[in-house]
């Protein structure tokens, strides 16, 4: 099938390897990947800041461009939640409402797509390391994805998965991280200390935005931890 890949702005600019890994995995599984180059951002920063008009401004081209896609795979749980859960709210009562609902129905976060839609858990990856998995909150609580990434990790050769004490937010939260930097930092420290307590070498996640925040703290504080996106692990 033809998979339309939605690459959020920060993956494009900061973490291209995440998108590249996804393309390689999908192609390896025999699918054709389509990347709509003109789509850059889902509009979540404006949406979360209360600027719904501006969010709609960025979201409308997304609705239009993805209208004819068979399935849309989003390279982030958070942006995935934006398309799948929040677009229908954003466009409720507008003439785009039905388009938003139609798009929502065919959107998948990457790990969810592999496991739920394709029924694939083993992509032939090998990653000999002890890792812990961080659930991005939007993926976990808006998209209700918890088992899919773990099922994928369980089939990676050499990989040992250890769980953290609880599913707690890393403290990123988009503009929250700069509007309330010290609260955000404290939350990130709690996350890092829980990850350190597992003895894992890597924090794996399906959200590069969470990892950007956590890695920023790790680098500043010189912690013995590394971050890596799930897709990069699966492409190894």
């Amino acid at each position: 099938m033809t998979v339309t890949l939605f690459i959020p702005c920060f993956v494009d600019l900061l973490y291209p390897q995440v998108g590249i890994s996804m393309v390689r995995i999908l192609e390896k599984l025999g699918h054709k990947v389509d990347f709509p180059e003109q789509l850059t951002c889902c509009g979540q920063p404006a949406f979360n800041s209360g600027c719904w008009d501006e969010a709609r401004g960025l979201a409308e081209p997304v609705l239009t461009r993805l209208r004819n896609a068979d399935v849309v795979v989003i390279a982030s749980g958070s942006c995935g939640a934006m398309l799948k859960v929040f677009y229908p709210q954003l466009f409720a009562g507008t003439h785009h409402e039905s388009a938003a609902k139609a798009l929502s129905a065919k959107c998948y976060e990457f790990s969810d797509f592999l496991v739920t839609k394709l029924g694939v858990t083993d992509v032939g990856a090998s990653f000999p390391a002890k890792v812990t998995y961080h659930d991005g909150c939007h993926g976990l609580r808006e998209l209700h994805i918890k088992d899919a990434p773990r099922a994928l990790l369980s089939r990676v050769r050499g990989l040992e998965l250890v769980e953290m004490q609880e599913e707690v937010c890393c403290g990123f939260g988009g503009t929250f991280a700069v509007k309330f930097p010290m609260i955000s930092t404290a939350m990130g420290e709690v996350k890092c200390s829980q990850a350190l307590a597992t003895g894992a070498e890597y924090i794996v996640s399906s959200d590069s935005s969470c990892l950007m925040h956590v890695q920023g703290l790790i680098d500043r504080q010189g912690l013995k931890l590394k971050t890596i996106h799930l897709a990069e692990v699966l492409a190894s």
Binding site: I7, V11, D12, L13, L14, Y15, P16, Q17, G19, I20, E37, P181, M182, T185, G188, M212, H213, Q215, G216, L217, D219, R220
Partner: peptide, 14 residues
């Protein structure tokens, strides 16, 4: 103030 910044990639996904 409390975090390092990520680097813009040498080659973006696009």
């Amino acid at each position: 103030r409390s975090r390092e910044t990520p680097r813009i990639a040498r080659q973006t996904f696009r």
